[in-house]
Amino acid sequence: MVLFLIKRLVGLVLTLLFAALVIFLVLEILPGDPAAMMMGVSATPESVAALRAELGLDRPAAARFLEWLGGFFTGQLGLSYTYRVPVAGLIAERLAVTVPLSLLALGLAVAFGVTLGTLAAAHAHRRADLIIMGMTQLGLAIPNFWFGILLVLVFAIGLGWLPAGGFPGWAADPMLASRALLLPAIALALPQAASLARITRSTMLETLSEDYIRTARAKGLSRSQTIRRHALRNALIPVLTILGLQFSFLLAGTIVVENVFALPGLGRLLIQAIGGHDLILIKSLVLFYVATAILVNGAVDLAYGLADPRLRVGRA
């Protein structure tokens, strides 16, 4: 078990390092002169030279790369070119929006996805199943940003129940702040819930045809008791592996949805940084996203081993 863990961790660290290297190459080496790229065509040679000095571009690339990586541990990621504030502080501040948003969306997606998928499997090939499966096809086809716009049309502009966008901040009014995250989380959760429902349905159907389900029924458990106590856990083990990949999509989704609702999160920061050619900010943000995706996938892999007793012992 320990050996397995160490192997996994080493693999994870290597992947992270490689990801950082690729991002560094793409954003700082391949453009030739990042300073010129950041300042655009109207820049004077003097101002470009000044920025080059600020970025330390005269120093060797390897040193800059290591310094950048070290910055993730010391918090010294440099000054944002457009905002003129430390990148680390900027990221930390925006996380207060993106993290609660992602968790809320994930929670909604799992709750609705697993419930609907289980319902569909329990009523396989009957009307409830067809309706749920039709809904999931729609959920997969509707772009989340358009769904967000529709939600705004109905619940913000039409009914006036919830804000159309913006974020008041947690400090001012936590209640208001959570209300501001509700519509974005729903928009973000839609495609995730749809695909989770489809996966849950198919693993649940597979599980329900297992012999031990008949054993449970022979013991006197009702259909719904059997599903809850015997089928659900077995059916959700494969769903768990998908969840890591799902989280990647969810993370990418926050970039889009934050822009729909003008939420001051990481995603909006990224798009603004791209608009301002702020390479300093972009490279740290992108690595932050990628590292999160890789780490979550790694964590899910480990969780998979813990959820299934067969694997738990097999690896001991």
Partner: peptide
């Protein structure tokens, strides 16, 4: 089915052929 559930396992029980697959692997 609800009435049958009260009888299954209580008044009548059953043993299946495949002991390998008839037990729930995660309990």
């Amino acid at each position: 089915d609800a009435d049958l559930c009260r009888l299954r396992g209580r008044a009548m029980a059953m043993i299946f052929q495949e002991p390998m697959t008839a037990l729930n692997p995660v309990l």
